[in-house]
């Protein structure tokens, strides 16, 4: 037969145990919620930056046509060269992103993913021999990316010709630079 004192002690211990469990659960839930909220905020800010970058990249003097709302393809390779020499400036501007321009029309499917570089440029077949430019790429921690994109007008001043392309910006869910 259990004595009164033993029951009392058992009850007290049980109450304390349950109260502590409730407190710990409450703190854990709140802590998890705070961390999730911060992660969501970082992702939202990164997406906001990438969306703004879509409009900004098309209008960037290093890449755009003068006042015509298009991208000047003859500036892409010179820009990449300048980027190599002055990466810090553009790292501050773009942050952790991958910026790619892809030609959509008119282009053969076989060359859509072929990257345009100096070698492709000097060939007679240019611009039919390639279909994409990697303008900028900085992802030091190999993070997974989310992508935003928009249609752009591509101008080829060598041939006085307009084509249609897509500007893609992959952002890494992090607004660090």
């Amino acid at each position: 037969m259990v004595k009164k004192g033993q029951v009392h002690v058992s009850e007290t211990i049980l109450v304390l145990f349950v109260v502590v469990i409730i407190l710990m659960m409450g703190v854990t839930i709140y802590f998890k919620f705070s961390v999730e909220k911060s992660k969501t905020l970082a992702e939202e800010l990164s997406e906001e930056q990438a969306t703004i970058m879509l409009a900004k990249a098309v209008g960037l003097e290093e890449l755009s046509c003068e006042g015509l709302g298009c991208m000047d393809t003859s500036k892409f390779l010179p820009f990449k060269r300048v980027l190599g020499e002055d990466f810090g400036r553009y790292k501050r501007m773009f942050g952790r992103k991958r910026i790619v321009v892809k030609e959509l029309y008119p282009i053969e499917d076989s060359v859509k993913e072929v990257e345009c570089d100096v070698v492709k440029y000097i060939q007679m077949e240019y611009p039919e021999n390639c279909g994409s430019w990697v303008i900028y790429d900085y992802n030091p921690e190999n993070e997974p990316a989310a992508k935003v994109s928009t249609i752009v007008s591509l101008y080829y001043p060598e041939f006085d010709e307009y084509r249609v392309g897509r500007l893609e910006i992959e952002h890494y869910g992090d607004i660090r630079r």
Partner: peptide, 24 residues
């Protein structure tokens, strides 16, 4: 909001870019 903004930008760009393209 951001997704709507991007749709707006996409529509405007899709219109302007295509109006200008040289058709082979």
């Amino acid at each position: 909001t951001l997704a709507s903004q991007r749709v707006g930008i996409e529509t405007e760009n899709a219109l302007n870019a295509v109006l200008r393209v040289n058709l082979e």
